[in-house]
């Protein structure tokens, strides 16, 4: 017994180190699995508070660019709106536009990373603003990521620039769909994989979200095809997608809630249960 105690006293530094190292590894591995309840996130009172403080100062430096972006979006929305009103008067009533399945909330990015292999953003909205896990996040120019943790006042977003991220996307022209992933090389270029070789792929074509998940509405802009690669003997294309979003410069974003998500998931789960 005494020997054991001596052993502990002699090696107390090593044991302490091993213990703390094991805890760190546990946190690390946990962060590599997609949205299991995390302990260490920047969506908490202290970190969120300091990041809001930082963003309240740094906001001023980007005002001009952000305004330009919003003006651009306004312009685009106005053209769409005018087209829409023309259509509505022509086609009488179209209830699709009246009760949309999706609800949009605005939020501001208070922290953004893009230089690591697993990147996250922090937003200044949280559970108190009805933000919850698995809501989609887009900017005026296109898709950004998916909410993966929330606290009362803040939320973190799994960016599309994260090796864990996999989002259903399709070619706008032909409806062939694949998965949007990221190879960590360039924050402006993501990869679209598993596009069948039958699909007509042309450089410069637009890629949009597929609408097969309950997270994003169909047709949210992602980017344009920059390059493609068809490996010999493979039935699938690997595409390089130039993102519309400048992921290094984000401020105002929209969080999308799918009002039918719960119902859809419930139904799908019920079907799965029956099959088992």
């Amino acid at each position: 017994m005494q020997q054991i105690i001596y052993f502990f006293i002699r090696n107390k530094n090593f044991l302490l180190f091993l213990f703390l190292f094991a805890i760190s590894l546990f946190f690390t591995i946990q962060s590599h699995t997609y949205h299991s309840g995390k302990f260490v996130t920047s969506a908490n009172f202290l970190t969120g508070g300091i990041y809001s403080f930082e963003s309240s100062i740094s906001d001023y430096f980007g005002l001009e660019k952000q305004n330009l972006k919003l003006v651009e979006e306004n312009k685009r929305l106005r053209t769409q709106l005018s087209q829409l009103t023309e259509n509505v008067t022509a086609k009488v009533e179209d209830s699709i536009f009246l009760n949309s399945r999706f609800r949009f909330r605005t939020a501001k990015v208070i922290n953004n990373t893009y230089s690591k292999s697993k990147n996250y953003l922090t937003l200044n909205r949280g559970a108190i603003d009805s933000i919850s896990i698995d809501m989609g996040v887009i900017s005026p120019k296109g898709i950004i990521g998916i909410v993966n943790a929330t606290s009362e006042n803040y939320a973190t977003v799994l960016s599309i620039l994260n090796t864990e991220s996999q989002i259903n996307a399709r070619l706008k022209k032909s409806n062939h769909f694949g998965s949007l992933v990221w190879n960590t090389k360039d924050p402006n270029v993501a990869q679209l994989i598993d596009i069948p070789r039958l699909a007509p792929v042309v450089i410069g074509d637009t890629v949009v979200t597929g609408g097969r998940s309950t997270i994003f509405p169909e047709g949210v802009l992602i980017g344009t095809i920059k390059d493609y690669n068809l490996e010999e003997g493979s039935n699938y294309y690997d595409l390089d997608i130039e993102l519309f979003n400048d992921m290094t410069n984000l401020r105002h974003v929209y969080v999308i809630e799918n009002l039918d998500a719960e119902e859809i998931l419930e139904l799908e789960n019920a079907v799965d249960d029956v099959e088992q």
Partner: peptide, 19 residues
Amino acid sequence: DMFMDSGGVHAAACSFIAY
């Protein structure tokens, strides 16, 4: 790690060099 949302990678590296 908390600020950078990086799990425990900084904590692991720091405790190692401290040891």
